[in-house]
Simulated assay, not measured.
Amino acid sequence: MDAQTIRDKVEAIKGKRDALIRLLEQPDLGTLRIDVNQALEEMDDLLEEFDRTFPAG
Score class of each variant (00 low, 15 high):
D44I: 07
K16W: 03
A39F: 14
L23F: 02
Q38L: 12
L46K: 10
L40N: 09
R33A: 13
E25Q: 11
D18W: 01
V36G: 05
L40Y: 08
V10Y: 01
P27K: 04
D45Y: 13
T53D: 09
L32T: 13
I21P: 11
I6L: 06
D35Y: 13
L40E: 07
R7V: 10
K14N: 12
D44L: 09
Q38S: 11
L47C: 04
D2V: 00
E42A: 10
A3F: 14
E11K: 10
V10L: 02
G30T: 08
L29D: 05
F50S: 01
A39V: 12
R22H: 15
L24Y: 10
I34F: 13
D51V: 11
P55I: 02
A19M: 08
K16Y: 07
L24E: 15
P27M: 05
L46I: 13
D18T: 02
Q4R: 15
L29T: 07
T31L: 15
K9C: 01
I34V: 14
G30Y: 05
D35K: 15
L24S: 11
A39L: 13
L23E: 09
M43T: 08
A56D: 03
L20Y: 00
M43G: 05
G30D: 05
A56S: 04
F54P: 03
D28F: 02
L23A: 06
A56T: 06
P27L: 04
L24I: 04
K9S: 02
G15Y: 08
L20M: 01
I13H: 04
T53R: 06
I21Q: 13
A12Q: 15
F54S: 07
K9P: 00
D51L: 11
M1W: 03
T5Y: 01
N37L: 04
E25L: 07
T53W: 03
M1F: 07
E42N: 11
K14M: 12
D8C: 00
L46A: 15
E48V: 10
D28C: 03
E49I: 09
E42F: 11
P55W: 12
L46M: 15
D28Y: 01
Q38E: 15
G57V: 14
R33K: 14
M43V: 06
A19F: 07
E48C: 06
R17K: 10
T53N: 07
K9L: 00
M43A: 08
L24K: 04
F54V: 08
K14R: 11
D44E: 12
M1I: 09
E11N: 13
G30Q: 05
L20E: 00
Q38G: 09
E42R: 12
G30S: 10
L40I: 08
K14T: 14
R33S: 15
I34L: 12
L32G: 14
A19C: 07
I21C: 10
G57N: 09
R22I: 07
G57Y: 09
L47V: 03
I6K: 06
D18R: 01
I21A: 14
E25N: 08
I21S: 14
D44F: 07
A39C: 15
T53P: 01
F50I: 01
A3C: 12
G15Q: 12
A3S: 12
N37R: 04
T53V: 03
M1V: 08
N37M: 05
D51G: 04
P55K: 11
D2K: 02
Q26W: 06
Q38P: 06
